[in-house]
Design a protein around this nucleic acid. Structure first.
Lengths: 196, 196
DNA sequence: GTGCACCAAGCAAGCGTTTGGTGACGGGAC
DNA sequence: GTCCCGTCACCAAACGCTTGCTTGGTGCAC
């Protein structure tokens, strides 16, 4: 079928196959035998390329968080206006999340499993930075008078991040495109559902 | 410690203990041995009260959905105004969800596992009714002119339900009370985050 | 003829579940 | 009052299966 040649390509191919399964069923619920089946090899042969199942998860999660944080950092570097910054964060997130559905499902389904292990300590670090970015922009928006002064920044962040990260775990449907979802989201976010 | 007496009380006690674990780790990630440990008995002894682990899950999930739907039905029976109806749905949901954290985690973590089995076919049925209730109220609100006419009812429902159901899975924290969360939510929902 | 990608087989540990047995308790018969 | 018997809640041990992972070997490429 697919004819990847170089060793690193073959390895990356396996990570993608595993990621597809993780995206559907989560990390723990996916077995190494299923991954091997998808690749057309036996489960034991996976260990020629990876030293453990966790290593595959590690590769997926760290790549995701680097990508997300890069988007966040760029968003706040480019824009002075907090409302624009938040819109930019939302748009960059949506693009990033679309490229890393596996990581998202893993974080949602297996957070307890990963976050407990020292190996995945970077998860908590990265989430802290993400939280801080949101809170900074929300607080700045309150000061400039663009956002409501009675906004609880941390609470709002938790709500918004969840709202933002959830649709990604929706099955990739023909019903809505990514742009539709992000537009619906931004509309909801800035204006609410009622007419002024 | 706790001295439940009657057989049905004892059974219910076990369901609660199991539910506490499911709420933290999900259904599949929780072992029958952990449930038994929490109850201070051996894992095999659980099968004197239940014929399978799934039966415990069944009991928790069906009780939850009955409770949710009862709240929804009452909300739309009592109120003619769609905006009030939605507010009522949100408030009733919050109360219900607080009482059924286990079911929520199970639906989020193990939806694929449950929804595939014939035994849990009622999950899909109930979710359909929940979706229809939301969509009906959103559409009515568009007709009365209270909600923006360009609202995609189904998309908005998916976003709103997820927003609403998520905070429940947050660890029961001292940071925010249930009322705080639901108020923040309604505020976000109706008015957005920007100042008019 | 050396290295690489993979197979065939199997390991220990953990899973949900089953089996046979044990002690405590309670209600009749005498 | 005591004896007996059944029921109840549970234990101790194991079953069959799946899990992630290991081991030793094989064929092909260069």
């Amino acid at each position: 079928m697919t004819n990847a040649k170089s060793p690193s390509e073959r390895r990356a191919h396996l990570v993608r196959l595993a990621g597809d399964l993780f995206a559907e069923k989560g990390f723990r619920a996916t077995t190494v035998r299923e991954i091997a089946d998808a690749a057309g090899i036996l489960s034991g042969s996976l260990y020629h390329h990876f030293d453990s199942k966790e290593s595959i998860g590690d590769e997926i999660l760290s790549a995701f968080l680097e990508d997300v944080l890069a988007g966040y950092r760029e968003a706040i570097r480019e824009t002075a206006d907090p409302r624009t910054a938040i819109e930019q964060i939302v748009r960059s997130s949506t693009a990033t999340l679309g490229r890393h559905r596996a990581a998202l499902t893993m974080l949602q389904n297996d957070w307890n499993y990963f976050s407990g292990q020292p190996r995945f300590a970077y998860l908590r670090t990265a989430m802290k930075e993400i939280e801080q970015t949101w809170i900074d922009q929300l607080e700045r928006g309150k000061q400039t008078g663009q956002f409501r002064a009675d906004l609880d920044a941390r609470l709002t962040y938790r709500l918004l991040r969840d709202i933002l990260w959830l649709p990604t775990s929706w099955r990739p449907s023909a019903t809505w495109s990514t742009e539709q979802i992000v537009d619906g989201l931004l509309r909801l976010l800035f204006d609410g559902i009622t007419v002024p």
